[in-house]
Nucleic acid binder design. Sequence first.
DNA 1: CTGAAAGCGCTTACAG
DNA 2: CTGAAAGCGCTTACAG
Lengths: 361, 361
Amino acid sequence: MTCPKRKGFFIANEQGEEKLSATGGKRGRVTIHTVAALANVSISTASKALNDSGRMSPETRERVKKVALEVGFRPNALARGLITKRSFTIGLLTNDTYGRFTLPVMAGISEELVGHGVSVFLCAIEDDPERARVHVDAMLDKSVDGIIASGKRLDRQLPVDLSGLPVPVVYAFTKGATDGVTLRSDDEQGARLAARCLIDAGCRRIVHVTGPKTFQSVRERADAYRTAIDGPPEVLHGIWAEAWGHEAVAQLWERGGEKPDGIFCGNDQIARGVVDGLRERGVRVPEDVAVVGFDNWEIVAAQTRPPLTTVDMNLRTLGREAGRLILAMSEGREVQSGIRKLPCSLVVRQSCRGAEALAGT
Amino acid sequence: MTCPKRKGFFIANEQGEEKLSATGGKRGRVTIHTVAALANVSISTASKALNDSGRMSPETRERVKKVALEVGFRPNALARGLITKRSFTIGLLTNDTYGRFTLPVMAGISEELVGHGVSVFLCAIEDDPERARVHVDAMLDKSVDGIIASGKRLDRQLPVDLSGLPVPVVYAFTKGATDGVTLRSDDEQGARLAARCLIDAGCRRIVHVTGPKTFQSVRERADAYRTAIDGPPEVLHGIWAEAWGHEAVAQLWERGGEKPDGIFCGNDQIARGVVDGLRERGVRVPEDVAVVGFDNWEIVAAQTRPPLTTVDMNLRTLGREAGRLILAMSEGREVQSGIRKLPCSLVVRQSCRGAEALAGT
DNA sequence: CTGAAAGCGCTTACAG
DNA sequence: CTGAAAGCGCTTACAG
């Protein structure tokens, strides 16, 4: 035995043998003591070997790593976090019950972070300040490395003040602190994409059927639509529902005058109502009237007859970006504050085929 | 000064003063040392006072608690977890990308646990065994107190083996280990609810339009339907899509013979297709044909014209139950293994009004 | 090149 | 009734 006869040794070796014989491990996980004992080094050296820190002979480092691998050693994140002040966890706060926006964002965040060993707490707070507070406190107790606040409107804040928290915060798809880091989609650019698609499809008279004017995104999309089209703009405001799509078609077709040959809708639900309304009137989509939606909400867009051409806000990418930023901030890297607009893209299905239609494809 | 002049004191008091002057707290959070120093007790006593453990004079206990409240002391969950072996975190593993099932389940879990200080890691694994492994390892590293595995099919397992893990596991809406604890909805009872509603509405010839026979839930619902109705059963299998609903209506109406006066659909998407198909043929719902769906997927059920009467699997309740169970197990309480079926309920909207229709309400 | 010691922020026997 | 000591499983100066 070349091991120094120190107190920890026998215990460690005991564990080691137990671990080697029964890899299930009932009496707790294998700790760094086991690895150190088995590799015949001190736990300091074991720690440094595994973290690629400190200086030691390459042989020693390799030997320790090999042993660690063999016994399936995984460092206890709680113990590590206590010292390093990094817990490798972050929190995602959301008030989006349906998950329409949260889920893609969450997928992106997770995608970006899981490779860095970071896990994500999901906290659904549903606009309840009390509950929000409880969740935030629970996360701070657990020393999260950062919090991503996500919502469903750009012009509303979550019902809890996240400024002045001892951890970095990134806002995604919700109104953030003025000096915070905020991520959002570029709705104007998205609206231009939609308008461009309709124009390319040969539409001359394009109407915009959208949601309540109180939504910032509604105003932005409408503004972009107004400047993007050639003819006189017409914006019809209503609620975010299929029924409003029907209703709008009824209004447009039951009044006198020229009918539109292109309709840009504020979201996919409205678009679906519009398409259904048109079909019921015997108006063909996209031959007589081309329609473009907004959101690319698969369940709505793909089931519409014909399937919707629509603007995708690339929420998953937005989530990845949020993950990247919160990681950088939690590692102490400087991140520029302000609002970052991420581009939308157009998903072409049947309801508007853009230039293809004219090309006769 | 009545404080013993021990080493920790000055540091603690220093922190205490900093904390009291600037409640923001930049130089780390306030620790139990601060509380102890300010309350003039040892940290052991402080700890016991705050945890309502040990014995001491009520005055001392109160004094410590008061100080803790004043300085906003919150125990570091990492440190506490290291000792008590409870991290007050659990993991939710899911392969349900859309969140159709996961979100309500998650809401229920969270609802049940947040009051106990437990936070939930959400891990979306999308049927990728590799990713599942990475997520599970990351959670074990963080010493989760338990894992809830949730899916979207009762007859499929998640792509990772969760048996033999050092933490308890509860399966929700997915196939679990044979000796595990599994939660699911009672689909047969749900189907009986649907059949009963149609029968009560006066339907004499009820057809079942549903999804692929390969799904266990499809078979269970179909079996329950067969025994629940009076007349000869007829089950049409297809895919889980609106298009199949249309198609089924076409098949039923374009062949000779008697038409159904009631249709029980395997999910809300199919039901929506059926209702749309009927309307397009001039068949009135519910007057000529009553329709009942399954899932109560708000976005589909409420937007259908007329809105769908449908079976709700009460996934939120299922989530709460899963939370309750995992909490019990993580606290070492015995929980009976096996499959637990939770009852469904019927949400009555317009497409089938059950007995009301006959009552003339 | 390697290890003993101190310590992260708590809890829990144990001693007085 | 209260506190000193040991320790959870690690990391990190520091000393040799």
